[in-house]
């Protein structure tokens, strides 16, 4: 009896989502959100510094945070970072855009045609386990050392994730919404475009996000392997730094790689996802 009573009380206590959302906006909330990541960065820098001070490796192999950050600031102020980022992000967005087109068409086809889906399910699983670096020898054979090989590998890395994300999102569309759509006269492609796809959008977005992570990784592998001396991309800078045993430069450019990956994730996908969740009133973060 007692257990029953408490359960009833709990279910009655529902917080108003609007009030919570309003409280979360504003500077105070932004600061609160930034605290966690900031703490993580500080801890990472501290561990780095401690490892360097322990004398495990000589300073010219593993420099500490201070010289590396100084070097990073230098590369920034000389405009090198922006120039390299422009080349690399240009490649990334071209490759990712192509991957989105192909992955989406692929996913739509698979979710609509059962035979295609059964035929391609195994292939996709295989493609997803394949490390993207393993594609480069073939890519270079097919397209030589050039932009096309990099794009080829980006698409192969990202498109399967995008397709799989869309297919599983479509599978998880509540059947009731489909029933409602059908009784209101939406059939065939109209049903897909107006009901199934919008309902699957959050899952599709998750696939895009994963696809982006894959294409960013493939791109970095590509810039290190398909190395073009006339195009000083971020990968090329990493390559140079290693060739010249420039440990400070190497670590500084690695930070650039990490920062760009995180920024795109937070600013592009994070924002889109948040606005989508807010619109639909989906799970406020805990």
């Amino acid at each position: 009896m007692a257990a029953l009573a408490t359960r009833t009380m709990k279910s009655d206590r529902r917080a108003a989502p609007e009030a919570l959302a309003q409280a979360r906006t504003g500077a105070a909330a932004a600061w609160r959100r930034a605290q966690g990541p900031l703490l993580a960065v500080l801890v990472a820098l501290l561990i780095w510094e401690l490892v360097v001070r322990s004398g495990w490796k000589p300073q010219w192999v593993l420099p500490g945070p201070a010289p590396v950050l100084r070097r990073l600031a230098q590369e920034f102020s000389s405009g090198e970072v922006l120039a390299a980022a422009r080349i690399t992000l240009g490649r990334a967005s071209a490759g990712f855009a192509l991957a989105v087109l192909i992955g989406t068409a692929w996913g739509v086809a698979m979710s609509r045609v059962r035979l295609l889906r059964e035929a391609l399910a195994g292939l996709i699983a295989g493609l997803q386990t394949m490390p993207s670096v393993a594609w480069f020898p073939l890519a270079i054979l097919l397209f030589q050392l050039g932009e096309s090989s990099i794009q080829f590998v980006i698409v192969l890395g990202a498109a399967p994730s995008i397709a799989v994300g869309l297919v599983s999102a479509v599978d998880h569309v509540p059947p009731l919404l489909l029933r409602v759509g059908r009784t209101m006269g939406a059939r065939g492609f109209t049903l897909f475009r107006r009901v199934i796809f919008p309902a699957a959008l959050p899952g599709y977005l998750a696939g895009l996000k994963q696809g982006w992570a894959f294409s960013w990784r493939s791109l970095m592998a590509g810039e290190l392997m398909v190395f073009m001396a006339d195009r000083p991309s971020i990968g090329a800078r990493l390559h140079f730094a290693r060739e010249l045993s420039d440990a400070e430069g190497l670590l500084a450019w690695m930070i650039v790689v990490l920062a760009i990956g995180l920024l795109v994730d937070a600013l592009v996908f994070g924002r889109v996802e948040n606005s989508l969740r807010a619109k639909r009133g989906l799970g406020e973060d805990v």
Partner: peptide, 16 residues
């Protein structure tokens, strides 16, 4: 022809 249907769940489209 096609009748209108209402279910126990309102089943409104959350994106609209």
């Amino acid at each position: 022809g096609q009748p209108a249907v209402m279910f126990q769940d309102a089943a409104l489209f959350p994106w609209l």
